[in-house]
């Protein structure tokens, strides 16, 4: 099809100081804040309605595996670090380092999903289903939606990992921007977990 040139696709707008996709991803993340905000608000309302920890609301640590989740938290924070390192490597023109860090980001994300899957398996093995109690329903829903976000991030990153050479050769600047945008999304997904972990497992 006839290609047309969209202004500020990969260069910064002089007034706003960002390129289009960067503004786009920040708007998307604003929408995501409201999305997870609604989830956390629902959690608060349901928990307050249940009468606090003394009532129908169990303590997360009694049902869930805190050490495993702590490990997972470390895994996810590490993946955020490798993500930003991969972008920084591209910025300084070191493509090999980018591939190493970016591959590590995907690997760590898969490790997170594996551990999360083990946790789910253990819960289901103990016959704790979403229908068992509202606490478990909340737990499965919040971590499940977060896991969907991780899977989406892995898919996006895997695409960029596989086609990195070609895209970088064609338009290095645009590819670097794409990694930055994917990184912003990835940091947000990590940030959500930083809130989910204490809320569900510790409080």
């Amino acid at each position: 099809m006839a290609e047309i040139e969209i202004p500020y696709n990969s260069t910064n707008h002089p007034d706003t100081g960002v390129y289009n996709a960067k503004l786009g991803i920040w708007l998307f993340l604003a929408s995501e804040v409201l999305f997870f905000g609604a989830l956390f608000s629902s959690y608060i309302l349901l928990r307050v309605g249940a009468g606090g920890t003394a009532g129908d609301w169990p303590l997360g640590a009694d049902l869930l595996n805190v050490p495993l989740a702590t490990f997972n938290t470390v895994v996810l924070i590490s993946s955020s670090m490798t993500m930003v390192m991969s972008w920084a490597s591209l910025k300084s023109g070191n493509f090999d380092a980018f591939q190493r860090y970016f591959g590590a980001t995907i690997g760590l994300a898969l490790l997170f999903l594996l551990v999360k899957g083990l946790e789910y398996y253990a819960e289901i093995f103990h016959q704790r289903y979403p229908s068992t109690s509202t606490f478990l329903a909340t737990y499965y829903t919040m971590t499940g939606i977060h896991a969907l976000h991780i899977i989406f991030g892995v898919a996006v990153n895997a695409y960029h990992f596989v086609s990195a050479k070609r895209l970088y050769a064609e338009e290095p600047e645009r590819f670097t921007n794409r990694i930055e945008v994917a990184g912003l999304y990835w940091h947000f997904v990590d940030l959500v977990w930083i809130f989910l972990f204490p809320v569900l497992y510790l409080l």
Partner: peptide, 9 residues
């Protein structure tokens, strides 16, 4: 989820 997974939100 209330409809298909039996949760009670």
């Amino acid at each position: 989820l209330d409809r298909v997974a039996g949760t009670s939100f």
